[in-house]
């Protein structure tokens, strides 16, 4: 089954110049490397911080464009991985091994017939 793992965290402390951050990048790289090699990962990206976010809302026939993420929450999606595994347990095991302190939401993908 195909799932998206969404990595959610508070990105306000995320500073790429700090050595801890570089260490974290290294471990994330290893995680992606390991699971890509075993064929479980089909895609994934890191997102820039929420300070770069722009939100477009379509409501009652009106469209507004505003600065910032779609919710006020402190935590936001910072990246994702698309995985293709046997079942939810495998996806959970991957999420548990994610090397950076985060909340991870796992959602199955809707698989449309060709």
């Amino acid at each position: 089954m195909k799932y998206m793992l969404m990595f959610i965290s508070d990105d306000s402390n995320w500073d790429p110049s700090k050595p801890e951050t570089q260490e974290a990048y290294k471990r994330v790289g290893e995680w992606f490397g390991e699971h890509t090699q075993s064929g479980k990962i089909t895609g994934g990206e890191e997102l820039k911080g929420t300070n770069t976010a722009t939100t477009v809302r379509q409501r009652n026939g009106k469209i507004t464009v505003t600065d910032g993420p779609f919710t006020e929450a402190k935590e936001a999606i910072g990246g994702y991985a698309l995985v293709d595994v046997k079942d939810l347990d495998e996806a959970i095991a991957m999420a548990k091994a994610w090397p950076v302190l985060s909340t991870i939401e796992i959602r199955p993908l809707v698989e449309h017939p060709e």
Partner: peptide, 14 residues
Amino acid sequence: ADAGIPMRVPTALE
């Protein structure tokens, strides 16, 4: 069915 919860005994780790 939708989330793919399996019917099996989990691995030793889990």
